[in-house]
């Protein structure tokens, strides 16, 4: 079996978006997600000697990130225990005194939804990895970040027709890849 190599200088370009997506779907706080991803990269750098090459770099980084996320929740929960509990929430004028505001939201994501979304996110990122860098970058900016055409053109110094050609190629490749990896 071929051993995987480790190339930390390429980590940010290759894995930062994937790790960020993985984190934000679990912590739901953009700033915290960025911090956790950064901590993961730094911790991985420090424990590079433990990388045996049996799993891919991405799998190894995710295993470190998972521990960081668990630590984050442990820290939050230990703080919660010490927090003051407010008992005056029932006053008539205050928002949230209705009973239905206190029960669990039935439209909230279930564990099954989260699992399907994780798998779908993985499939999309696996397809994005196969695109040339420029196509992946433009596709992410337009489709995931939802940026205006003009903003992307200015940032990347390309014309609008150039952008649409790139988008067309990226969408065609993504649709084919998703057809193989997700729909079938």
């Amino acid at each position: 079996m071929s051993k995987h190599t480790i190339e930390p200088e390429k980590w940010i370009d290759r894995y930062s978006d994937y790790l960020f997506n993985y984190t934000i779907s679990r912590v739901n706080d953009r700033e915290m997600a960025k911090d956790l991803v950064q901590d993961t990269f730094v911790a991985s750098l420090k424990s590079m000697k433990n990388f045996k090459g049996e799993a891919s770099e991405r799998t190894w980084l995710i295993s470190i990130l998972k521990r960081k996320i668990i630590d984050y929740y442990r820290k939050i929960n230990s703080k919660k225990g010490k927090a003051e509990v407010r008992m005056d929430y029932n006053s008539d004028e205050e928002e949230g005194s209705w009973l239905e505001e206190r029960v669990a939201d039935p439209f909230d994501k279930t564990a099954e939804d989260t699992l399907v979304n994780d798998e779908l996110g993985d499939a999309i990122y696996a397809c994005l990895d196969k695109l040339p860098n420029k196509q992946a970058q433009v596709f992410k900016m337009k489709t995931i970040q939802g940026l205006e055409t003009e903003t992307i053109c200015n940032e990347l110094n390309i014309t609008a027709s150039n952008l649409w050609v790139i988008i067309h190629r990226a969408r065609t490749a993504m649709a084919e890849c998703m057809e193989k990896n997700w729909f079938n």
């Binding site: 940010i12 960020f20 950064q38 990269f41 999309i124 995931i144 970040q145 998703m178 729909f183």
Partner: peptide
């Protein structure tokens, strides 16, 4: 094409902004 749009919207996938990636 519509199928791709639907699946991406459904996934609620996110990524870093370019400036955030630069800071990182």
């Amino acid at each position: 094409n519509k199928q791709l749009t639907t699946v991406i919207q459904k996934s609620r996938i996110d990524c870093l902004q370019n400036n955030e990636r630069e800071v990182l």
